[in-house]
Design a protein around this nucleic acid. Structure first.
Lengths: 258, 258
DNA sequence: CCGTCTATTCACACATTTCGAACGTAGTCG
DNA sequence: CGACTACGTTCGAAATGTGTGAATAGACGG
C-alpha cells in the first residue's frame, strides 16, 4: 500500500485509524486505542467524542463500537452499483445449487468488495458468522477467485496499475506473490473461462469465480462459489462442474441485462 | 443538533462533511464541494485525496462518489445488533402480509436507524428505489411510527435526554414539535400498544409501529408497516388490523428469542 | 480508606491544515 | 483558430487547531 495523497490530511487518517481499530477489536476502550495506535490518550479522547457526535461510533459504557451511521453510506455505495439489484437473487441461487457459499464481487480502487454473500439454502447474509466472508468484506484482487477472474478480464495496463498500487501480499503459502506467475495464471483463467483459488486466501478454503462483462467488453463484477476444502473437492470434474454453474449463471444474467 | 464534543476535531468534521455532501448530492465535483461547504478548493482537494486513498470515496472522472469502504463498517455495525438476524425474515413477512412497506428499526444515540427494509412480496431491499425508505436510513425518533413506539417504551428521563439532544424538528405540518404534546402522544401509544404516524414524517406517507422489548423490560427495537396514504386507510379498523399484525409478530418474536 | 484502574481537562508548543494566488489543462464559443 | 472559461492541481506562507503530557476527577475493589 503506497500512499500518494498530495498534502494528506493526517488528522482524518487518525480518525479513520481509530474507527478501523475499533472494528478490528470488535469494540475498544480509549486506553486500548491509545496503546495500539500509539497516540496520546487525550488525542484519542477528542477523536472519539467527535466520531460519537457524528454517529460513526457508539459508546457503551467505556467501550466504543462502530456506529450505525456507516450503514446509510454503505448502502448508498452498494445501491449505486447497477448490477447489485439483479445479482442478489442469483447469489442465493448459486449458493443453493452448489450447497456452498456464494458471493458477488466488484472491483473498486483496485480492491475486491463483496456486495452480496449467501451460504446454504435459506441462510442469507448475516445469519452465519462462519468463515471470513460476509457482505461488504474487502479483499485483495490477486488472492481470491473472483478477484483473479476480474483481473483476467481487464486490460493488462489496469492490472499493472492495481498490483503497483497494492502489491501482492501473501496471506497463505499458496498466495501468488510473483508478478510473472500472476500473469501466467491470468492467461490460464482466460482460456479456462473461470478462476480457481486453492487456499491462496486462507488455508482450508477453496473457491471458484468467473467474471461478468458488459457488452462493450468491460468487466463489471464476478460471481464466486467457495467453501472449506472438505466440501470443495479439488478434482477436475468437481471444479469443472462448479465452473460451468458459474458460467451458465453469468450467461443468464448477461442475457437478462444486456 | 447541539455539539458537545469537548475539544472537537475540526479536520475530521470537515472530512465527514465532505463525505456527507457527496452522498447528499449523489456524487459531487471538487468545485461543487468547495462551493457548498465554503472552504478553499485546495482544502477540499486534500480531503478528497485522503478519503479516496482510504477507500471512503471513489473518483469517477472528476466526480467523487461514496466508496464501498463504508460497507464493511456498516455491515459490522448492523451485525452487532443481536436482533438483526432474527428480525430480517419477519420484516419480509410483515411486508407480504400487509402488502405495504415494512422495516425493523433500532435506536442508537437518540436516532432511529432502519436495519432492514422490505417492500411488497418478493421485492427485498434495494430493488425498489421508491419512497424515502431504504435499509440504513436514519430518522428522528419523534416523527416516525417506530421511533415514537420506542420512545413510548423508554424511561421518561431517556426521552428527555434524546429530545434535548436532537430537538423536535418538523418535516411536515403534522410533525409533533411540542414537548408536552409528544408526552401525551407517548402515553396514548402505551395504552394502545402501537404508534401511528400520519404524515408526520413526509406528506402522503402513513405508518404504524410497535416496539420490541426484552424480558427485563428494555426496549430493543421496533417493527413498522407503512405506505402511501392511498394504500394505508386512516380509518380505525384498518389501523387496528395493522397494529394487531405488528403486535402478533412481536409476540412471536419475543417467544422465539426470550 | 487507599491504590489502581478508568476517562477527562487544561495550557502550551509545534506541526498541520488552511488559504489564496498562480499554474496547468481541457473544453467551448466567438 | 485563438481567447476564454471552468476545472483540478500545486505551492509557500500564516495561523489555526491539533497533539501532547501532566494533573484532575471519578469508579472500582481489596
Amino acid at each position: 500500500m503506497t500512499d500518494d495523497a498530495p498534502r494528506p490530511v493526517k488528522t482524518t487518517k487518525t480518525s479513520l485509524a481509530v474507527v478501523r481499530t475499533v472494528r478490528d477489536n470488535d469494540g475498544a476502550t480509549l486506553s486500548e486505542l491509545a496503546d495500539q495506535l500509539e497516540v496520546a490518550k487525550s488525542t484519542i479522547h477528542n477523536h472519539l467524542h467527535t466520531l460519537v457526535e457524528e454517529g460513526f461510533l457508539v459508546r457503551e459504557g467505556d467501550t466504543y463500537h462502530v456506529g450505525l451511521q456507516f450503514l446509510p453510506f454503505g448502502e448508498h455505495a452498494r445501491d449505486r452499483n447497477p448490477l447489485y439489484a439483479a445479482t442478489r437473487r442469483r447469489v442465493y441461487s448459486l449458493s443453493e445449487k452448489s450447497g456452498n457459499e456464494a458471493d458477488f464481487i466488484v472491483e473498486e480502487n483496485g480492491r475486491a468488495y463483496s456486495l452480496e454473500y449467501a451460504i446454504g439454502e435459506s441462510t442469507p447474509r448475516g445469519l452465519s458468522e462462519s468463515g471470513p466472508f460476509r457482505a461488504g468484506n474487502r479483499f485483495y484482487m490477486h488472492n481470491c477467485a473472483s478477484g483473479k477472474a476480474i483481473l483476467a478480464s481487464m486490460p493488462e495496463a489496469r492490472v499493472r496499475e492495481i498490483i503497483g498500487r497494492w502489491g501482492l501480499p501473501a496471506t497463505t503459502d499458496e498466495t501468488i506473490t510473483d508478478e510473472a506467475a500472476l500473469f501466467d495464471e491470468l492467461e490460464a483463467i482466460r482460456e479456462r473461462g473461470y478462476a480457481t483459488n486453492n487456499e491462496e486466501l486462507i488455508e482450508g478454503y477453496r473457491s471458484i469465480g468467473a467474471s461478468i462483462t458488459s457488452p462493450d467488453g468491460e468487466v463489471v463484477g464476478a460471481f464466486s462459489i467457495g467453501g472449506p476444502t472438505y466440501r470443495m473437492a479439488v478434482d477436475e470434474s468437481t471444479t469443472e462442474e462448479i465452473g460451468q454453474l458459474l458460467v451458465d449463471e453469468i450467461d443468464a444474467l448477461e442475457t437478462e441485462l444486456f
